[in-house]
């Protein structure tokens, strides 16, 4: 099955390079990626609903990961969306356990190879289908 990813820059963060490069490379990995640009949690979840996303990808270098990241998970839960939520960007090591606790499935730092993001997504999505 085609995997569909909704990719967003979280909130006001302005750095689009990472999110767009990852989007283009996930496309190269055979996924369908809907690039949202900047959005806030509520709108990101709405887009995931409309697009039937398997994955919500959040990108941030803006220091808003702890406030807005978990909010995406929470709203998704409330609305009954079961997409995988992953995050990437400049995120302090110590915050990763907190994010995972809040329901972010994985956090990818700046030097992650795209393969490892793609294979993580594939295995998680296939698991949830099986």
């Amino acid at each position: 099955m085609q995997i569909k990813v909704v990719m967003a820059k979280l909130g006001l963060d302005i750095h689009w390079r990472g999110a767009l490069v990852v989007s283009r490379m996930l496309r190269d990995e055979g996924m369908e990626v809907v690039y949202l640009g900047n959005q806030f949690p509520e709108q990101i979840v709405d887009a995931a609903i409309q697009e039937g996303a398997d994955v919500i990808g959040l990108s941030t270098l803006g220091g808003n990961h702890l406030t807005l990241g978990p909010k995406v998970v929470q709203i998704a839960k409330e609305k009954g969306v079961d997409a995988l939520v992953i995050m990437g960007g400049v995120i302090p090591e110590d915050d990763i356990p907190l994010l995972k606790e809040a329901g972010i499935s994985e956090v990818f730092g700046p030097e992650t190879r795209i393969e490892s993001i793609a294979s993580f997504i594939r295995s998680e999505v296939n698991q949830s289908i099986a």
Binding site: L12, D13, I14, L61, G62, G63, N64, T67
Partner: peptide, 22 residues
Amino acid sequence: DLPTIRGYDSDDPEAEGHVGAA
């Protein structure tokens, strides 16, 4: 910080989580 750069006051709902952050 990002709200200032983006033209929002610190009490704007869009600013949440960003005030004084970067």
